[in-house]
C-alpha cells in the first residue's frame, strides 16, 4: 500500500500508529477510570465496526481500540462524539470547541485512578471525582502531563511512577474516652503502615511525625475511637517515570495539602511547561521537565499563587534515585 499519512497529526488525535501500515489504535479517555457501563456498547460498536474486534484495557486506563484503518478515522471520530461529550463535557465540564473531530490533543494523558472510596474499604476519598476535576485543568492541552490518583497510601494506582501522583490521606483523630486500649490499631499500624502507635497507661499514643494517613486504625477500631477528620488531605508525589533511560520512583513533594492546593498546582502546570519548554509543546516526561527546570525553580513556579493550607508540608529538596540504564558510567567492558 502506498500510504501518505501524517502520523503526528493522527497521534495528537489520539490514534496511535500500528506496526501494520495504515492501521491505528484509538485511545479513548476515561478520566479517573470509572464510567457508566452503558458506554461499553459504544466501545464494542467501534471495535467491531471499524477496529479488529478487540479492545485493550490501556495501561493508562483508556479504552484502546486497535486495527482501525486510516480511511475510517473520520467515521470513528464522528461516532465517538457522543462519548466525548458525555465524558469530557458533561462529567468533567471540559471546555471544547469541537467534539465531532475526535480528541483534539493527546498531550495531557488520561488520568488513572484506583476505585477509591466509591468501593474500597481502604480508600480515603473519591478518586474519580478528583480526576474529573483535574481533567478540566489539563485537557485539552498539547503540553504533556501524566497523573495518577490513589485512594490511599497503598498506592495501587502507582502514583509513585507518574509525573504527579496524588494520594488520599486522612488526618486521624483520637477520642481518648472511647478508646479501650485493645491495641488493634497498634497491630494494624505495625503490620500495614508506619508503626507510629504504641500503648501507654492503657491508652494509645502516637508519633505524629510519620503517620502515613492511611486510616487503618479507624478500620480496625472496635469502638470508633479513631475517626477520620472530615477534611480530605492529599500527598503529592512528583517526577516518577518509566522509560528506557532513567526510570525512577517519584518523591514526595507535598504532604497534608487540601484539594484547593492540588487544583492550584495542577492549574500551574501548563504555564510551567510552557516556560521551561520555551512555549514549544514537545513531548517530555514531567520528571525530565522538572529536572530541566531544577527542583527549586519547579517549586517556585508550581506553587505560584497557591495558598497552602496550614497543615501543608513541602519538600525542601528532593533526592532522586534513578535506575541509570543510559548512564552506567562506572561499568566498563572487562577487556579494556
Amino acid at each position: 500500500m502506498n500510504h501518505d499519512i501524517n502520523i503526528g497529526k493522527l497521534q495528537r488525535n489520539c490514534f496511535r500508529q500500528s506496526k501494520v501500515p495504515g492501521e491505528f489504535m484509538l485511545q479513548m479517555r476515561v478520566p479517573g477510570a470509572v464510567i457508566d457501563a452503558k458506554h461499553l456498547s459504544l466501545v464494542q460498536h467501534v471495535a467491531e465496526t471499524w477496529g479488529n474486534g478487540k479492545f485493550h484495557i490501556g495501561t493508562r486506563q483508556t479504552f484502546s481500540l486497535p486495527g482501525i484503518k486510516y480511511e475510517n478515522i473520520d467515521a470513528v471520530n464522528e461516532y465517538i462524539k457522543s462519548y466525548i461529550e458525555a465524558i469530557e463535557v458533561e462529567l468533567c465540564d471540559v471546555e471544547m470547541d469541537d467534539t465531532d473531530k475526535g480528541y483534539p490533543t493527546i498531550g495531557a494523558r488520561n488520568t488513572t485512578a484506583c476505585i477509591g472510596n466509591q468501593h474500597c474499604i481502604k480508600g480515603n476519598f473519591d478518586t474519580t471525582s478528583l480526576a474529573r476535576k483535574l481533567e478540566k485543568l489539563i485537557f485539552p492541552s498539547n503540553y504533556h502531563i501524566k497523573m495518577s490518583v490513589a485512594g490511599c497510601p497503598n498506592d495501587c494506582s502507582k502514583a509513585h511512577f507518574t509525573d504527579f501522583g496524588i494520594i488520599g490521606i486522612a488526618k486521624m483523630e483520637y477520642d481518648y474516652g472511647r478508646c479501650i486500649g485493645c491495641g488493634k490499631c497498634i497491630d494494624a499500624c505495625q503490620g500495614h503502615a508506619t508503626r507510629v502507635l504504641s500503648k501507654s497507661q492503657g491508652k494509645i499514643i502516637k508519633d505524629t511525625c510519620c503517620c502515613a494517613g492511611c486510616g487503618e486504625c479507624a478500620t480496625v477500631c472496635p469502638t470508633g475511637a479513631w475517626t477520620r477528620n472530615a477534611t480530605k488531605f492529599y500527598r503529592v508525589i512528583i517526577g516518577g517515570r518509566a522509560g528506557k533511560q532513567y526510570p525512577r520512583m517519584g518523591k514526595m513533594f507535598l504532604n497534608w495539602v487540601t484539594e484547593d492546593v492540588i487544583m492550584g498546582i495542577i492549574g500551574n502546570w501548563q504555564d510551567f511547561s510552557a516556560e521551561i519548554l520555551e512555549h514549544k509543546p514537545i513531548y517530555l516526561h514531567g520528571g525530565h521537565l522538572i529536572d530541566r527546570a531544577g527542583y527549586d525553580r519547579f517549586k517556585e513556579m508550581i506553587l505560584e499563587g497557591v495558598e497552602l493550607n496550614p497543615e501543608s508540608e513541602v519538600a525542601e529538596r528532593i533526592y532522586w534515585a534513578e535506575t541509570e540504564y543510559r548512564a552506567n558510567i562506572h561499568v566498563k567492558p572487562v577487556n579494556k
Binding site: 474499604i121 480508600g123 478500620t219 470508633g224 472530615a230
Partner: peptide, 8 residues
C-alpha cells in the same frame, strides 16, 4: 458525619 469506619 464522615466519622464511620470507612471513608465517607
Amino acid at each position: 458525619e464522615k466519622r464511620g469506619r470507612y471513608s465517607d
